[in-house]
């Protein structure tokens, strides 16, 4: 639990942060994932740049038919924000259930997406809502759908010199909810499922089912074709093969996907 020697700088502007990242520093957001990994020596960056002093990365505002959320906005702020609670409840609910209060006070929405933990709640919730991220690097600014952001275990499609600056949440996500299952209150989700029911139909996405958050296409297609919820639940785990581990077998986890999809769908429908 002793990290290797490293250089630490704290950026005070986005440009400063981007310069540091370009020079090879690992961005440090809330530190709720990177710090434990460094302590366990699973990560040993030679340098980190703390984004905690970059004011333009924090805050939530309405921007047309989207909500713009600064990447360094904490889970607690996301969970409590009236706009997000109203228009994108699935994300607020997922943020409210991350870890413990201490973690929610420090952990950030952008950090959660960039870290890309296969059991993270925010990526699945934002995927269910149909959100995207704005990233900036030396090649300028671009927009990536969350579904294209996380590519595998702890891996994203960000270029090495890019930072997530903003998360874009659609105001038209409709009725939505997030359901998760974990052993203790503070634990990672074993499985989590976000469901949104909007004008374009039902979107559902799960965490814990593979190396990245995944759309529950079986579940979605049954419901969007007018099928019954029961049939949809039966198809919820279609195409998925979560790894068995101390938390349970593949079979058990697939069962949980159905249970949680039903739970999230019921809650979303009742909103």
């Amino acid at each position: 639990m002793i990290p290797s020697t490293l250089e630490y700088t704290k950026a005070t502007s986005l440009d400063e942060a981007l310069a540091a990242v370009k020079a090879g520093a690992r961005p440090l957001a809330g530190g709720m994932s990177l710090m434990p990994m460094m302590r366990l020596r699973l990560a040993a960056p030679g340098a980190v740049v703390d984004l905690g002093g970059v004011p333009e990365l924090v805050g939530i505002c309405e921007d047309g038919d989207e909500i713009a959320v600064g990447a360094m906005t904490t889970h607690r702020s996301v969970a409590n924000d009236p706009l997000i609670r109203e228009h994108c409840h699935v994300v607020a609910q997922a943020a409210a259930g991350v870890g413990s209060m201490t973690i929610r006070n420090r952990g950030t929405i952008g950090g959660s997406l960039a870290h890309a933990d296969p059991h993270g709640d925010l990526p699945a919730a934002i995927l269910a809502a149909g959100g995207a991220v704005i990233v900036r690097g030396s090649g300028g600014e671009r927009r990536i759908d969350v579904g294209d952001l996380i590519t595998s275990y702890l891996t994203t499609s960000l270029a090495e010199d890019e930072l997530i600056t903003q998360v874009r949440l659609p105001k038209g996500a409709g009725q939505s909810a997030y359901a998760k299952f974990h052993r203790r209150a503070i634990d990672w989700s074993i499985i989590g499922v976000g469901v949104s029911i909007g004008a374009d139909g039902v979107r559902a996405a799960a965490t814990g089912v593979g190396d990245h958050p995944t759309r529950l296409t079986g579940f979605e297609s049954v419901l969007n074709a007018g099928g019954s919820l029961e049939d949809a639940i039966a198809k919820a785990g279609e195409g998925l093969s979560p790894l068995g581990d101390l938390d349970g077998s593949t079979e058990y986890k697939l069962h949980l996907v159905g249970v949680l999809a039903a739970q999230a769908h019921a809650e979303a429908s009742s909103r």
């Binding site: 052993r183 203790r184 634990d187 101390l246």
Partner: peptide
């Protein structure tokens, strides 16, 4: 409900941190 120190058959510790070895928290 929660706690078990687990070894793999080849002697590796599978519960080396408090993420795997679950101690009840106040909320439990």
């Amino acid at each position: 409900l929660f706690e078990e120190t687990v070894y793999s058959e080849d002697g590796h510790m599978l519960t080396p941190t408090l993420v795997e070895y679950l101690v009840p928290s106040a909320a439990d």
